[in-house]
């Protein structure tokens, strides 16, 4: 399969390229970037030195291919989607442009009317754990948000099981600096970011709408910036309708994820890593999901960890590509991570 990446000079584009260059069934034909046109891709992604001779090409020089990854900033590629679909037939957009199905919600969270609401209904939310069969048949796939992915995978099984109050769900998310992208602004300067423990979105984060759309329930999401480059940790507080046992929770999560190649249930009685922790997931496509029962407060604490650039972006996009192409779902995504790291 011949693919191209539009907007490949950022962190997500670099992560896509890292995965695709070693994918046994993929040839990367082009990587576009207007700001870096003519320069080798290794200038933006030094980990790819001596691995590829690819040079960034201008967006306007995009050639036809089998599948196109869009790694542009939010809102920048919407107008060209029809053209991209003609050039490639299949498009996986890693921006937030097509995640929300409801144009009114898009306006509420993004502050503008969606320019192509007709395409919202046609796109598929690209989280294989929920929409695997639809992804196989899709032409336009929208890559989920990183915080949203963690929160959805943590709480959806509880909501589906009907054991928690769906009007009172708190998601507390911590995120590393790379989630802000290459142009994270002054907040990403070392002097501001070093040692940070900052509440950057106590309420109103855009991923709230995605989580509600895909998991259900009414979500109270708060987001924090922490001292890490990669990683999302979502700690979710759900309140039980009736008492349940730890064994009941195990059954709920096993039923949801027992067959999933990239979701591991991590709730262990001993050891240093008893619950999901992003530190050991850097570079992997795993989302580790765990839980704890708080009988005193009638609460389940559901926890999910992932690498925001992998399962939170490029990794899931490649997983979707594998589904679209009929390749084994885990192909090119086998890295197991590092420990210690």
């Amino acid at each position: 399969m011949k693919v191209a990446i539009v907007g490949g000079s950022g962190y997500t584009g670099g992560e896509l390229l890292r995965l695709l260059l070693r994918h046994p069934k993929v040839e990367v034909g082009q990587v576009t970037s207007d700001s870096m046109a003519g320069k080798p891709v290794s200038r933006a992604h030094p980990n790819l030195r001596k691995v590829t001779d690819l040079v960034f090409t201008p967006h306007a020089d995009l050639d036809p291919c089998d599948l196109l990854f869009l790694a542009m900033p939010h809102g920048r590629s919407i107008a060209r989607i029809p053209e991209f679909l003609v050039r490639a037939g299949k498009v996986i957009d890693l921006s937030s442009d097509f995640r929300l199905k409801d144009p009114a919600l898009y306006r509420e969270y993004y502050g503008v009317d969606h320019p192509r609401p007709d395409l919202l209904a046609a796109s598929v939310y690209g989280l294989p754990e929920i929409h695997r069969e639809a992804i196989r048949r899709a032409t336009l796939i929208s890559g989920p948000g990183c915080i949203a992915t963690a929160a959805i995978l943590a709480i959806r099984p509880l909501l589906k099981a009907g054991i928690i109050d769906d009007e009172r769900l708190v998601v507390d998310a911590k995120t590393g600096s790379s989630a802000g992208g290459l142009d994270g602004g002054p907040a990403s300067q070392h002097a501001e970011r070093s040692g940070v423990m900052r509440v950057y979105a106590p309420a109103g984060h855009r991923h709230t709408a995605e989580i509600e759309q895909e998991a259900g329930g009414k979500i109270a999401l708060s987001c924090h910036a922490v001292e890490a480059v990669r990683g999302i940790l979502a700690t979710c507080h759900a309140f039980l309708k009736d008492s349940v046992s730890t064994k009941d929770l195990w059954k709920i999560y096993r039923d949801a994820y027992g067959q999933e190649p990239f979701v591991r249930i991590v709730t262990e009685a001993s050891g240093l890593y008893r619950f999901p922790e992003p530190k050991i997931l850097a570079g992997t496509n795993f989302c580790d999901v765990g839980f704890a029962l708080d009988a005193h407060a009638g609460r389940v604490v559901a926890i999910a960890a992932l690498d925001n650039l992998m399962k939170g972006a490029a990794g899931t996009a490649v997983q979707c590509m594998n589904l679209v192409a009929g390749y084994p779902e885990t192909m090119g995504l086998e890295f197991l991570g590092l420990h210690p790291v």
């Binding site: 064994k247 195990w250 249930i265 709730t267 009685a269 001993s270």
Partner: peptide, 24 residues
């Protein structure tokens, strides 16, 4: 703890081992 099925295999009385799922 977690309800994981545990097979007897060649375990002997008094042997201590972790549950493959929850680590108990």
């Amino acid at each position: 703890e977690c309800g994981r099925a545990i097979e007897k295999k060649d375990l002997i009385e008094g042997e201590i081992f972790p549950c493959p799922d929850c680590g108990l």
